[in-house]
Design a protein around this nucleic acid. Structure first.
Length: 780
RNA sequence: GCCCGGGUGGCGAAACUGGCAGACGCAAAGGACUUAAAAUCCUUUUCGCCGCAAGGCGAGUGCGGGUUCAAGUCCCGCCCCGGGCACCA
């Protein structure tokens, strides 16, 4: 069980951990070996920003934040495995981030390129695509992201796109459907073909990606993304280039959903590889450089966007797909494109073929003639990991004027973060101003060289920290693979839905890379994922930037840690979002007090002897409760109903208390305390010691239930007449159908509804119910 | 537009395989204890109607249909709310 928090502890974390902790305690009590640690990771930005404001050293500041959080969590009584605690900001850990980086660099999985990148002015750093939400930073939801051209390091997540998608089949049983759906969406596989269009008066080709090669005879122009490399070759005039530049900037600023289409004719033409006709080459702001090839063939008759664009600029519309049972549209007069499948028309030798068949045949024709092939495109992009921050793992690269890009030799790791760095928040990496860090001899030629000054995204830390937990003090390797084979894949991972496409894709990617490095044998990090709901305050998720966090300390002061934990478990089932509303916390406190009082005042009353009726009733309820809570733990973790059944038990014990003999008292007190232990460990431990026991209660075995004791003496069978409840009878379990029918009809309450009417039939389900169906009265 | 969730009392919710709708808790009301208050303990509490009362009758799980002896649960068609993706070619 491996959850992890980020930022400062708030009620959302408390809920997350209360769920994981209850489960871990239960598993311990059932005799399982459970690794139940926690991670300190994506701490960089908040810590650094806070340090900047407070004028303090970011490292010291972060470590003190971690210490504070740890104290809070210990106060909550979470039985985390502190011996395996990992601060991913420590050189002992990030050394292995650097080691992995070098391994990926060797294999071409880490590379550097200049790219237009998402830049958050507030964080003063680059963001990964995954960290951009609605054109804004994921931390600053109202700060629009800007585009900047920078040299950046990337990890080649796209090399694993197909596998990340295919392996989701293995996860279907254990991962929530909505997480898989989000990842499927994010990876965005689409099948089609890549086709080359030759330029009319130049040797260059324009490659386009299309999912609808069957519509290619309807292509009436090509459209390039404004960032497309060919654009600068085609558009040489200064005024033209300025207009392209404007187009790029305007596109970046706009919310893409509201962007108006705009285009520019390049003055050049390409040759249609199938028909040989001339197609004008345009530049269009709606064509994305980051998807497919950054160029499209426009088929206005059969695509919404192309239609809009071509109508805007008077480019002809040529329908080539006839709907089945329909007629071919007229390009001059059609008001909307037809984007469905149908039968090809005006498409040379392919006319008359249905779309699906034509797609295959035309792609292989293109392949045979050397101007295209079937292709699969993914929306997923490579993971940009460079950050212009102090806080993070230094990227182990040295730039030498003579040798170029030189990786730091493995033996020189870790490249340590210098201490006492001045944070300016001014965009450039703070490390760049530290001369003793920056200036190093080149490892190859020994001449003066410079270090890479960017640090890694802290999501690198969280991508594999849970592997390190199995072997946290290993000096010679990230971990011992044999230990990993024992523990992995993780049986149960618990985390927030917020990580569905960030952390949970990165860590899947990292696992596959480690597998290909021969370090692990599993392809997926976790068999089962549980995404617990968020704690909402004022309608949105608690986050520091929104200032709507509820600090657990205050609540613990007022009510105690156990009440606080019980409340987060009782209010709603764990997978649901929970609105923060303190009004019912009182009830949890009352319940704990009632249970505590019952056990303490009865602790010394135990004895031997025969059971009386009250004893038997109490024991029955006790064993039913053990059964119920055990089932809840083993199947679904609806801790709200588990706690509700504990409340029922306590209520019943209060009712029976004065009639109980000493005989069952010991068993009742003991099992009641054990049942409470996963949810309210402090109270349970206290009661446990009060019962004369010693040692941690969660090392004691989970109580068993006796099915015979849990069984009711008689079954209460509801009697319905025409589906309406009219009475009950009490019979022995297993009373056969015929007896039930007879007893039901003879029942006094039922008689008055049945008397004088004709019984059509009687449905009797043993131990369940009886339904008497009477014929409607004939109309007079 | 596409893909996931969800809609049940004044509120948070429960009902696990189609079988007694509203467990448990909050809030509210009443009672016991107390000089008093708090705390605690006990009782009532889906709505409407009838009854002095025990109790009785009817309606009821977003809306409209359907299947079934029986539907919160299954099927068809809608409405609303939340989340994710989105000029993705």
């Amino acid at each position: 069980m491996l959850p992890y928090p980020s930022g400062k502890l708030h009620m959302g974390h408390v809920r997350n951990y209360s769920i994981g902790d209850a489960l871990a305690r239960y598993m311990w009590m059932r005799g399982y070996n459970v690794l139940h640690p926690m991670g300190w990771d994506a701490f960089g930005l908040p810590a650094e920003n806070a340090a900047l404001k407070a004028g303090r050293d970011p490292r010291e500041w972060t470590l003190s934040n971690i210490a504070h959080m740890k104290a809070q969590m210990q106060r909550m009584g979470f039985a985390l495995d502190w011996n395996r605690e990992i601060a991913s900001c420590e050189p002992e850990y990030y050394r292995w981030n650097q080691w992995f980086f070098l391994k990926m660099f060797e294999r071409g999985l880490a590379y550097r390129k200049e790219a237009l990148l998402n830049w958050c002015p507030e964080c003063a750093t680059v963001l990964a695509n995954e960290q951009v939400v609605n054109g804004c930073c994921w931390r600053h939801e109202t700060t629009p992201v800007e585009q900047r051209a920078m040299q950046q390091w990337f990890l080649k997540t796209t090399a694993y796109a197909a596998e990340l998608l295919d392996d989701m089949k293995q996860l279907e049983a254990g991962w929530p459907e909505r997480v898989l759906a989000m990842q499927r969406n994010w990876i965005g596989r689409s099948e089609g073909a890549e086709i080359d269009f030759a330029l009319e008066n130049a040797p260059d080709k324009i490659r386009v990606f299309t999912t609808r090669i069957d519509t290619i005879y309807g292509a009436t122009c090509l459209i390039l993304a404004p960032e497309h490399p060919l654009v600068s070759a085609l558009m040489t005039e200064v005024t033209e280039r300025l207009r392209i530049k404007e187009m790029i900037d305007a596109t970046a600023r706009q919310d893409p959903a509201k962007l108006e289409k705009a285009g520019l004719f390049s003055g050049h033409y390409a040759i249609h590889p199938f028909s040989g006709s001339r197609l004008p080459i345009w530049i269009g702001n709606f064509v994305l450089m980051g998807y497919g090839t950054g160029a499209i063939m426009a088929v206005p008759a059969h695509d919404e966007r192309d239609f809009e664009f071509c109508r805007m600029y008077g480019i002809p519309v040529v329908p080539v797909i006839r709907p089945e049972d329909g007629v071919l549209a007229d390009g001059e007069t059609m008001t909307a494109p037809f984007s469905g499948y149908g039968v090809l028309e005006n498409s040379g030798q392919w006319s008359g073929l249905p779309s699906v068949e034509a797609r295959q045949k035309m792609a292989s024709f293109a392949n045979q003639n050397g101007f295209g092939a079937e292709a699969i495109t993914y929306r997923l992009k490579d993971w940009g990991i460079s950050r212009q921050r102090y806080w993070g793992t230094p990227i182990p690269i040295i730039y030498c004027d003579r040798c170029g890009v030189v990786p730091v030799p493995e033996g020189d790791l870790p490249v340590r973060l210098p201490l006492h760095v001045k944070i300016t928040g001014q965009g450039e990496s703070p490390l760049r101003s530290v001369a003793e860090f920056m200036n190093v001899p080149c490892p190859r030629c020994g001449s003066a060289a410079r270090r890479e000054s960017d640090t890694m995204d802290t999501f690198v830390d969280s991508s594999w920290y849970f592997y390190r937990y199995c072997d946290p003090h290993n000096d010679g390797a990230p971990f011992d693979s044999r230990l990993i084979a024992q523990w992995f894949p993780i049986d149960q991972y618990i985390g927030g839905i917020t990580h569905a496409i960030l952390h949970l894709i990165y860590s899947r990617f990292w696992t596959k890379v480690m597998r290909d490095l021969g370090l692990v044998s599993n392809s997926e990090p976790a068999n089962n994922l549980f995404t617990q709901g968020m704690v909402l305050k004022d309608g949105s998720a608690m986050s520091k930037s929104k200032g709507n966090v509820v600090d657990p300390d205050e609540m613990v002061d007022r009510y105690g840690a156990d009440t606080c934990r019980l409340y987060t478990l009782f209010a709603v089932p764990p997978e649901k979002d929970m609105d923060w509303n303190e009004s019912s916390v009182e009830g949890q406190r009352r319940f704990l007090a009632r249970l505590y009082k019952f056990v303490t005042r009865n602790a010394g009353r135990g004895g031997n002897g025969d059971f009386n009726d009250a004893d038997r009733q109490a024991l029955r309820k006790l064993h039913q409760t053990v059964r119920k809570i055990t089932n809840d733990f083993d199947s679904r973790w609806h801790f709200n109903t588990s706690i509700a059944s504990l409340m029922e038990l306590v209520n019943e014990l209060y009712q029976l208390e004065s009639k109980l003999s000493p005989a069952p008292i010991r068993e009742i007190c003991e099992k009641l305390t054990l049942l409470l232990a996963p949810f309210a460990p402090y109270t349970a431990q206290d009661l446990w010691e009060g019962l004369g026991e010693s040692g941690p209660i969660f090392r004691h075995s989970w109580p068993a239930f006796d099915p015979n004791l849990a069984k009711e003496d008689l079954a209460e069978i509801p009697i319905q007449v025409n589906g309406k409840l009219r009475g009950h009878i009490h019979v022995a379990f297993g009373t056969p159908r015929e007896d039930l029918e007879r007893l039901a009809v003879a029942n006094e309450k039922v008689k008055q509804f049945v008397q004088g009417k004709q019984i059509a039939k009687v449905i009797a389900v043993p131990d369940r119910l009886v339904n008497i169906v009477i014929k409607p009265e004939p109309r007079p």
